[in-house]
Design a binder for these strands. Structure first.
Lengths: 226, 226
DNA sequence: TTTTAATGTTACAGAAATATTACAAATTAA
DNA sequence: TTAATTTGTAATATTTCTGTAACATTAAAA
C-alpha cells in the first residue's frame, strides 16, 4: 500500500494526467474540481496527502488550507500546493498558512512525484520506500544510516547525499555536472574537482578490505555505482 | 541529441506538460496550438516526429496528415496522433491516412514516451537507442560499457566514441575525414593518420581470438564495421 | 617483378584526467 | 566560548590517454 492522495484542481486535464500517473505508481487517488465539494469529499476519503491548486473558482487555496488546519482530524494532513508561475507571493502565504511544499506549473510528473515522496517521507514514513539498497550496501533515509555488509558506516552529510544519489540509479554513469546539480543545493558554486574529493571520502568510508570497490571511475565521463 | 519533436494540440495544459517532460528527456520540442500555423512552423522546425491532436479548432487532424504525406520533404515524418477516448472511427481513419501510432487521452507521460521511442526506433533508430548492438558487440551508453560476446571490454574514451560512431551505422564505410569530424571534438586538429592508430587500438580491444575481425579496412576509402 | 602508395604496428613523450593530501574557513556540537 | 566536524580548494602525485613519428607490411599499379 502506497497511500491515498486527494487532488483539488480545476483544470481537468491536469487532474487526469496526475491522477493517472499516480495510480500507475500505486497510489489510491481521488479528486475534485472545486474547493467546497473537495473539502467534503476529502473528509470522507481520508487521504495521506493533498495536492491543492491555489487558484480555484470558488474557494481560494488559502481558505481551504486554513479550514483544514482548523479541523482536528485533518490538522496534520500534508499539503502540496500547485501554483502558476510567478505567484511568488502566494507561495509565501501558502507556506505561512501551513503548506508543506509547492510545485510550480508547468511541472513534470517526475518533479511532482519526487516532492510527494519527500513530503510523505517526513509525515508518514512507512508509506514510502525509505531503504535504498545495492548489493551489500544499505541506506536508510529515515534514520540516516548506512550499512555495508550489515556493518554501520559513518558518513558526513555530503557523502550521505552523494551515496543516496548514486543508489537511486545504480550502474548509471553520471557526469560531475549532473552530480553537482542534484547533490548540491541549488545555486551553489563549487568547483567540479571538488567532487573528486568527496568521491574519495565516500570511497574511503564504504570500502571494506577484501570487498570490491563500489564506485567506478569512467574517465572523461564521471562516476557510477557498480 | 535525442531528436526534435513538434506538437500540434489546442489544449495548452497538455502541450505544457508534454513539452516540459519531453524536454526533460532531452528532446528539442516546439509546438503550435492550431493546425494552419502549426503546419507552417512544422516545416521550419524539421522535427523527427510529430504529436498531432485529432480534434483541432481549424484544420482536422486528417487534413494535416494528408497535407504532410503529400509534401515530399515531410512524407516520411512519423506521426503519433492524440485522440480522445472512444473516437474509434478516427483511429481507423488516422491509420489509413498514414499515422504511425495513436495515444488515447488521458495518457500517462510514460505511455506517450514509450510510444515515441517505439516509433522513433523504427524510423530513426539512432536517435533513441541507448544500447547499440551489432552482432555479438554491445555498447551501453548509459553505463558506458562495451561487451563482445557477453564479455566486458575496457575502452579508452576515444575508442569508446569511435565504436559508438561505427555502431550508429554499421557496415557503412567512413572516410578518415568523416570520422574526424564526428568523433573528435570540434576545432581540434589531428593528423588524419592518427585515426589509424585508434583503429588499431579499437581492433586490439574488441577482437577475440577465433572470432572474426569486426573492423574492415577499405583501402583508399576508410573503415567500416562488418 | 619492381615500384609506389596506403595502411599496420610500435614506442614514446607530453597532455589530460583523476587520486591524494593537507589545510584553512565554515559550520555544528559541546 | 571552545572543540570537533565538515567543506571546498589548491597543490602535488599518479595514472591513463593521445598524437605523432618512425619503421614495417601489404596491396595495387606499372
Amino acid at each position: 500500500m502506497k497511500g491515498k492522495i486527494f487532488i483539488i484542481e480545476d483544470e481537468a486535464s491536469i487532474v487526469q494526467l496526475v491522477q493517472h500517473n499516480l495510480e500507475k505508481e500505486g497510489f489510491v487517488v481521488s479528486s475534485s474540481l472545486n474547493g467546497n465539494e473537495g473539502l467534503k469529499e476529502l473528509k470522507k476519503f481520508e487521504p495521506n496527502l493533498l495536492l491543492l491548486d491555489w487558484m480555484l473558482p470558488d474557494l481560494s487555496g488559502i481558505d481551504i488550507c486554513k479550514n483544514i488546519r482548523r479541523d482536528s482530524n485533518l490538522k496534520s494532513l500534508p499539503i502540496i500546493m500547485l501554483t502558476a508561475k510567478g505567484e511568488e507571493e502566494d507561495k509565501i502565504k501558502g507556506l505561512e498558512s501551513g503548506v508543506d511544499d509547492y510545485v510550480t506549473k508547468p511541472f513534470s510528473f517526475n518533479e511532482l512525484h519526487a516532492r510527494i515522496k519527500a513530503v510523505l517521507r517526513r509525515s508518514d514514513p512507512n508509506i514510502v520506500a525509505n531503504d535504498l539498497t545495492f548489493e551489500d550496501l544499505k541506506l536508510d533515509r529515515i534514520e540516516k544510516r548506512v550499512f555495508r555488509a550489515d556493518k554501520e558506516i559513518q558518513l558526513g552529510p555530503t557523502e550521505f547525499r552523494l551515496l543516496e544519489f548514486f543508489l537511486t540509479n545504480p550502474k548509471r554513469v553520471y557526469s560531475r555536472d549532473q552530480i553537482l546539480e542534484t547533490v548540491w543545493p541549488n545555486n551553489v558554486n563549487v568547483e567540479s574537482r571538488t567532487i573528486d574529493v568527496h568521491i574519495r571520502r565516500l570511497r574511503q568510508s564504504i570500502n571494506i578490505k577484501d570487498k570490491k570497490e563500489l564506485i567506478r571511475t569512467v574517465r572523461s565521463s564521471g562516476y557510477s555505482l557498480v
